[in-house]
Amino acid sequence: MVSRYCLEAVMQNISAQDTLIRKLTTHSRLSTAESAAIAELPARIMNYERGSFISRQTDFARDAFVVLTGIACQQQTTRAGARQILTVYLSGDVANVDPGFAGESQDVIAITPVEVALISLDALNHIFTEFPNVGTAFRREAASELALLQSRLVSLGRCNARQRIARFACEMASRQRASGGSEPEFIEWPWTQEELGDLTGLTAVHVNRTLKSLREDGVLALSRGRLQVTDWNAIEFAAGLNRNSTDQKRPALHKCLADLSLQPTQAEYRSI
Protein backbone atom coordinates (compact mmCIF):
# COMPACT_ATOMS: atom_id res chain seq x y z
CA MET A 1 0.00 0.00 0.00
CA VAL A 2 1.28 3.47 -0.83
CA SER A 3 0.11 6.74 0.64
CA ARG A 4 -2.01 9.27 -1.20
CA TYR A 5 1.09 11.43 -1.64
CA CYS A 6 2.90 8.52 -3.31
CA LEU A 7 -0.03 7.92 -5.67
CA GLU A 8 -0.13 11.59 -6.59
CA ALA A 9 3.62 11.55 -7.27
CA VAL A 10 3.17 8.66 -9.68
CA MET A 11 0.05 10.05 -11.35
CA GLN A 12 1.54 13.50 -11.85
CA ASN A 13 4.97 12.12 -12.80
CA ILE A 14 6.67 14.28 -10.20
CA SER A 15 10.42 14.00 -10.68
CA ALA A 16 12.89 13.04 -7.98
CA GLN A 17 14.28 16.56 -8.10
CA ASP A 18 10.81 18.08 -7.64
CA THR A 19 10.22 15.77 -4.67
CA LEU A 20 13.50 16.92 -3.14
CA ILE A 21 12.72 20.60 -3.72
CA ARG A 22 9.27 20.17 -2.19
CA LYS A 23 10.80 18.55 0.89
CA LEU A 24 13.50 21.19 1.39
CA THR A 25 11.10 24.11 0.94
CA THR A 26 8.96 22.92 3.86
CA HIS A 27 11.60 24.47 6.12
CA SER A 28 13.94 26.52 3.88
CA ARG A 29 13.64 29.22 1.25
CA LEU A 30 15.34 28.44 -2.04
CA SER A 31 15.99 30.98 -4.76
CA THR A 32 15.05 30.33 -8.37
CA ALA A 33 18.70 29.62 -9.20
CA GLU A 34 19.04 27.22 -6.26
CA SER A 35 15.88 25.33 -7.21
CA ALA A 36 17.06 25.18 -10.82
CA ALA A 37 20.41 23.72 -9.73
CA ILE A 38 18.63 20.99 -7.73
CA ALA A 39 16.30 20.34 -10.68
CA GLU A 40 19.34 19.63 -12.87
CA LEU A 41 20.81 17.02 -10.52
CA PRO A 42 21.27 13.66 -12.26
CA ALA A 43 19.22 10.92 -10.60
CA ARG A 44 18.91 7.17 -11.14
CA ILE A 45 15.57 5.61 -10.20
CA MET A 46 15.73 2.26 -8.40
CA ASN A 47 13.00 -0.01 -7.06
CA TYR A 48 13.34 -2.36 -4.08
CA GLU A 49 11.02 -5.06 -2.78
CA ARG A 50 10.03 -5.27 0.87
CA GLY A 51 12.95 -6.59 2.92
CA SER A 52 15.59 -5.65 0.33
CA PHE A 53 18.68 -3.67 1.29
CA ILE A 54 18.84 -0.25 -0.33
CA SER A 55 22.35 0.25 1.04
CA ARG A 56 24.67 -1.62 3.38
CA GLN A 57 27.08 -0.30 5.96
CA THR A 58 29.90 -2.26 4.33
CA ASP A 59 29.40 -0.40 1.02
CA PHE A 60 31.39 2.68 0.10
CA ALA A 61 28.96 5.58 -0.16
CA ARG A 62 28.78 7.14 -3.62
CA ASP A 63 25.16 8.25 -3.68
CA ALA A 64 22.59 9.88 -1.47
CA PHE A 65 19.03 8.80 -2.06
CA VAL A 66 15.58 10.34 -1.94
CA VAL A 67 12.62 8.13 -1.06
CA LEU A 68 9.96 8.67 -3.73
CA THR A 69 7.38 6.09 -2.64
CA GLY A 70 7.14 3.64 0.22
CA ILE A 71 8.77 3.36 3.64
CA ALA A 72 12.35 2.40 4.49
CA CYS A 73 14.39 2.32 7.68
CA GLN A 74 17.97 2.59 8.84
CA GLN A 75 19.01 -0.19 11.19
CA GLN A 76 21.95 -1.62 13.06
CA THR A 77 22.42 -5.27 13.95
CA THR A 78 24.46 -6.68 16.81
CA ARG A 79 26.87 -9.57 16.39
CA ALA A 80 24.24 -11.77 18.04
CA GLY A 81 21.77 -10.82 15.29
CA ALA A 82 19.54 -8.49 17.31
CA ARG A 83 18.28 -5.55 15.25
CA GLN A 84 17.53 -1.98 16.30
CA ILE A 85 15.64 0.26 13.88
CA LEU A 86 17.03 3.78 14.23
CA THR A 87 15.44 5.96 11.56
CA VAL A 88 12.30 5.68 9.45
CA TYR A 89 12.29 7.20 5.95
CA LEU A 90 9.03 8.27 4.32
CA SER A 91 8.30 9.77 0.90
CA GLY A 92 10.49 12.82 0.33
CA ASP A 93 13.07 11.93 2.98
CA VAL A 94 16.75 12.09 2.10
CA ALA A 95 19.36 9.62 3.34
CA ASN A 96 23.10 9.01 3.10
CA VAL A 97 23.96 12.65 2.37
CA ASP A 98 26.67 12.68 5.04
CA PRO A 99 28.51 9.31 5.12
CA GLY A 100 30.68 8.30 8.05
CA PHE A 101 34.33 9.24 8.44
CA ALA A 102 35.41 6.19 6.45
CA GLY A 103 32.88 6.95 3.71
CA GLU A 104 30.68 3.99 4.63
CA SER A 105 26.99 3.80 3.83
CA GLN A 106 24.20 2.95 6.26
CA ASP A 107 22.20 -0.25 6.54
CA VAL A 108 18.91 0.88 4.98
CA ILE A 109 16.18 -1.67 4.25
CA ALA A 110 12.79 -1.43 2.53
CA ILE A 111 9.83 -1.86 4.89
CA THR A 112 7.42 -1.68 1.93
CA PRO A 113 8.12 -1.77 -1.80
CA VAL A 114 10.22 1.37 -2.23
CA GLU A 115 11.19 3.58 -5.14
CA VAL A 116 14.23 5.77 -4.57
CA ALA A 117 16.26 8.24 -6.58
CA LEU A 118 20.04 7.88 -6.28
CA ILE A 119 21.91 11.18 -6.50
CA SER A 120 25.69 11.35 -6.74
CA LEU A 121 27.38 12.73 -3.62
CA ASP A 122 29.91 14.46 -5.88
CA ALA A 123 27.07 16.30 -7.65
CA LEU A 124 25.54 17.30 -4.31
CA ASN A 125 28.85 18.55 -2.93
CA HIS A 126 29.33 20.64 -6.07
CA ILE A 127 25.95 22.33 -5.47
CA PHE A 128 26.78 22.87 -1.79
CA THR A 129 29.94 24.71 -2.85
CA GLU A 130 28.21 26.83 -5.49
CA PHE A 131 25.03 27.44 -3.48
CA PRO A 132 25.80 27.40 0.28
CA ASN A 133 22.14 27.99 1.12
CA VAL A 134 21.29 24.61 -0.41
CA GLY A 135 23.81 23.03 1.94
CA THR A 136 22.12 24.85 4.82
CA ALA A 137 18.75 23.43 3.74
CA PHE A 138 20.19 19.91 3.78
CA ARG A 139 21.66 20.55 7.24
CA ARG A 140 18.23 21.62 8.46
CA GLU A 141 16.83 18.40 7.06
CA ALA A 142 19.53 16.45 8.90
CA ALA A 143 18.76 18.40 12.10
CA SER A 144 15.09 17.37 11.84
CA GLU A 145 16.14 13.74 11.51
CA LEU A 146 18.45 14.11 14.53
CA ALA A 147 15.61 15.62 16.58
CA LEU A 148 13.43 12.60 15.78
CA LEU A 149 16.26 10.25 16.71
CA GLN A 150 16.68 12.06 20.04
CA SER A 151 12.94 11.80 20.66
CA ARG A 152 13.08 8.07 19.93
CA LEU A 153 16.04 7.71 22.32
CA VAL A 154 14.00 9.34 25.10
CA SER A 155 11.14 6.99 24.25
CA LEU A 156 13.39 3.93 24.54
CA GLY A 157 14.99 5.06 27.78
CA ARG A 158 12.16 6.72 29.69
CA CYS A 159 8.79 5.56 28.31
CA ASN A 160 6.76 2.45 29.01
CA ALA A 161 5.50 0.14 26.25
CA ARG A 162 2.17 1.93 25.82
CA GLN A 163 3.87 5.31 25.50
CA ARG A 164 6.44 4.00 23.00
CA ILE A 165 3.82 2.59 20.63
CA ALA A 166 1.57 5.65 20.97
CA ARG A 167 4.47 8.05 20.38
CA PHE A 168 5.48 6.19 17.23
CA ALA A 169 1.88 6.31 15.96
CA CYS A 170 1.87 10.07 16.62
CA GLU A 171 5.16 10.45 14.77
CA MET A 172 3.97 8.51 11.73
CA ALA A 173 0.68 10.41 11.55
CA SER A 174 2.39 13.77 11.99
CA ARG A 175 5.05 13.10 9.36
CA GLN A 176 2.66 11.65 6.81
CA ARG A 177 0.34 14.60 7.32
CA ALA A 178 3.24 17.07 6.98
CA SER A 179 4.26 15.50 3.66
CA GLY A 180 0.66 15.42 2.40
CA GLY A 181 0.62 11.65 2.75
CA SER A 182 -2.63 11.00 4.56
CA GLU A 183 -5.47 12.40 6.56
CA PRO A 184 -4.32 12.90 10.16
CA GLU A 185 -6.46 10.09 11.59
CA PHE A 186 -5.39 7.49 9.00
CA ILE A 187 -1.81 6.21 8.99
CA GLU A 188 -0.05 3.92 6.55
CA TRP A 189 0.95 1.08 8.89
CA PRO A 190 2.89 -1.74 7.20
CA TRP A 191 4.76 -2.73 10.36
CA THR A 192 4.88 -6.30 11.62
CA GLN A 193 4.94 -6.84 15.36
CA GLU A 194 8.57 -7.98 15.08
CA GLU A 195 9.52 -4.76 13.27
CA LEU A 196 7.71 -2.65 15.86
CA GLY A 197 9.61 -4.55 18.52
CA ASP A 198 12.91 -3.80 16.80
CA LEU A 199 11.95 -0.12 16.69
CA THR A 200 10.61 0.23 20.24
CA GLY A 201 12.87 -2.23 22.06
CA LEU A 202 9.96 -4.53 22.94
CA THR A 203 9.28 -8.18 22.28
CA ALA A 204 6.70 -9.07 19.64
CA VAL A 205 4.47 -10.46 22.39
CA HIS A 206 4.66 -7.19 24.32
CA VAL A 207 3.89 -5.21 21.15
CA ASN A 208 0.84 -7.40 20.54
CA ARG A 209 -0.46 -6.87 24.09
CA THR A 210 0.11 -3.11 23.89
CA LEU A 211 -1.67 -2.70 20.55
CA LYS A 212 -4.57 -4.79 21.87
CA SER A 213 -4.80 -2.54 24.94
CA LEU A 214 -4.81 0.63 22.83
CA ARG A 215 -7.52 -0.82 20.57
CA GLU A 216 -9.68 -1.90 23.49
CA ASP A 217 -9.39 1.57 25.03
CA GLY A 218 -10.66 3.15 21.80
CA VAL A 219 -7.42 5.03 21.12
CA LEU A 220 -6.73 3.48 17.71
CA ALA A 221 -7.93 0.87 15.24
CA LEU A 222 -5.94 -1.37 12.86
CA SER A 223 -7.17 -2.73 9.54
CA ARG A 224 -5.36 -3.96 6.41
CA GLY A 225 -2.16 -2.00 6.71
CA ARG A 226 -3.79 1.16 8.00
CA LEU A 227 -3.95 2.54 11.50
CA GLN A 228 -6.76 4.90 12.44
CA VAL A 229 -6.34 7.31 15.32
CA THR A 230 -9.85 7.39 16.74
CA ASP A 231 -9.12 9.96 19.45
CA TRP A 232 -6.18 12.35 19.08
CA ASN A 233 -6.42 13.66 22.63
CA ALA A 234 -6.44 10.10 23.95
CA ILE A 235 -3.41 9.01 21.93
CA GLU A 236 -1.55 12.18 22.97
CA PHE A 237 -2.27 11.28 26.60
CA ALA A 238 -1.27 7.64 26.02
CA ALA A 239 2.00 8.80 24.44
CA GLY A 240 2.81 10.96 27.46
CA LEU A 241 3.36 14.00 25.25
CA ASN A 242 3.66 17.37 26.93
CA ARG A 243 0.58 19.50 27.35
CA ASN A 244 1.28 23.21 27.13
CA SER A 245 -1.38 25.53 28.49
CA THR A 246 -0.61 28.02 25.72
CA ASP A 247 -1.34 25.30 23.15
CA GLN A 248 -4.84 24.37 24.24
CA LYS A 249 -6.45 26.02 21.18
CA ARG A 250 -4.25 24.08 18.78
CA PRO A 251 -5.50 20.78 17.36
CA ALA A 252 -3.91 17.74 19.01
CA LEU A 253 -2.11 16.84 15.78
CA HIS A 254 -0.26 20.16 15.80
CA LYS A 255 0.69 19.71 19.45
CA CYS A 256 2.08 16.28 18.60
CA LEU A 257 4.15 17.84 15.83
CA ALA A 258 5.70 20.29 18.28
CA ASP A 259 6.18 17.74 21.05
CA LEU A 260 7.98 15.39 18.66
CA SER A 261 10.26 18.25 17.51
CA LEU A 262 8.40 18.50 14.20
CA GLN A 263 7.16 21.88 13.08
CA PRO A 264 3.74 22.27 11.41
CA THR A 265 3.83 23.47 7.84
CA GLN A 266 2.78 27.01 6.98
CA ALA A 267 -0.50 25.65 5.63
CA GLU A 268 -1.17 23.93 8.96
CA TYR A 269 -0.47 27.11 10.88
CA ARG A 270 -2.95 28.94 8.66
CA SER A 271 -5.57 26.30 9.45
CA ILE A 272 -5.31 26.86 13.22
Results as ranks from 00 to 15, higher is better:
Asp107Ser: 12
Ile165Pro: 02
Ser174Gly: 12
Ala82Gly: 10
Ala72His: 03
Gln106Asp: 14
Ser91Lys: 04
Thr58Asn: 14
Gln74Thr: 04
Ala238Lys: 02
Thr129His: 12
Leu257Glu: 11
Asp93Ile: 01
Ser155Arg: 09
Val154Lys: 12
Gly157Glu: 14
Leu30Met: 05
Gly92Arg: 04
Trp232Asn: 02
Met172Arg: 11
Ser223Val: 14
Ala239His: 05
Asp98Tyr: 14
Val94Asp: 00
Gly201Ile: 13
Val116Leu: 09
Val205Leu: 10
Arg270Ile: 08
Glu8Phe: 02
Glu236Ala: 11
Cys73Leu: 08
Leu196Tyr: 02
Ala110Glu: 00
Asp18Gly: 01
Ser31Val: 00
Ala204Phe: 07
Ser213Gly: 08
Thr25Gly: 05
Cys159Lys: 07
Glu194Ile: 13
Val116Pro: 11
Val219Arg: 10
Ala166Ile: 01
Gly70Ile: 00
Arg226Ala: 04
Ser182Asp: 10
Glu236Val: 12
Asn96Val: 14
Gly201Cys: 11
Ser120Ile: 04
Ala234Gln: 06
Arg22Asn: 14
Ala9Gly: 03
Thr26Met: 12
Glu141Pro: 00
Ala39Tyr: 06
Lys23Met: 14
Leu241Pro: 09
Arg22His: 11
Trp189Tyr: 10
Leu24Pro: 01
Ile165Met: 03
Gly157Pro: 09
Asp98Cys: 07
Val205Trp: 06
Ser223Thr: 15
Ser213His: 10
Ile14Phe: 03
Arg139Thr: 14
Ser155Pro: 07
Arg270Gly: 09
Gln176Ile: 05
Ser91His: 00
Ala64His: 06
Leu20Asn: 09
Ala161Gln: 09
Met172Lys: 06
Cys256Asn: 02
Gln263Asp: 06
Ser271Met: 08
Ser213Ala: 13
Leu262Trp: 06
Leu222Ala: 02
Asp107Thr: 11
Leu24Tyr: 01
Ala9Glu: 03
Arg209Ser: 13
Ile111Glu: 01
Cys6Met: 06
Ala36Arg: 06
Asn47Val: 07
Gly51Trp: 07
Asn244Cys: 12
Thr200Ser: 13
Arg250Asp: 01
Ala36Asp: 14
Glu145Gln: 11
Trp189Phe: 15
Glu185Leu: 00
Arg270Leu: 14
Thr265Lys: 03
Val134Tyr: 02
Ala204Val: 04
Ile54Leu: 12
Thr58Cys: 13
Arg164Gln: 06
Pro184Gly: 00
Tyr5Met: 13
Ser52Pro: 02
Arg164Thr: 04
Ile21Glu: 01
Gln75Ser: 10
Gly201His: 08
Glu194Thr: 15
Ala147Glu: 11
Thr77Val: 13
Leu241Trp: 06
Val219Leu: 13
Leu90Ser: 06
His254Ser: 12
Asp107Pro: 08
Thr129Phe: 01
Gly135Ala: 12
Arg50His: 11
Ser182Thr: 09
Lys23His: 15
Cys6His: 07
Asn133Asp: 09
Thr200Tyr: 10
Gly92Ala: 02
Ser155Lys: 04
Pro113Ile: 00
Gly181Gln: 13
Leu146Met: 14
Leu199Pro: 02
Val108Trp: 07
Arg243His: 08
Trp189Val: 07
Thr129Ile: 03
Leu153Met: 07
Thr136Ile: 15
Gly201Met: 10
Ala43Leu: 07
Leu146Trp: 12
Ile187Lys: 06
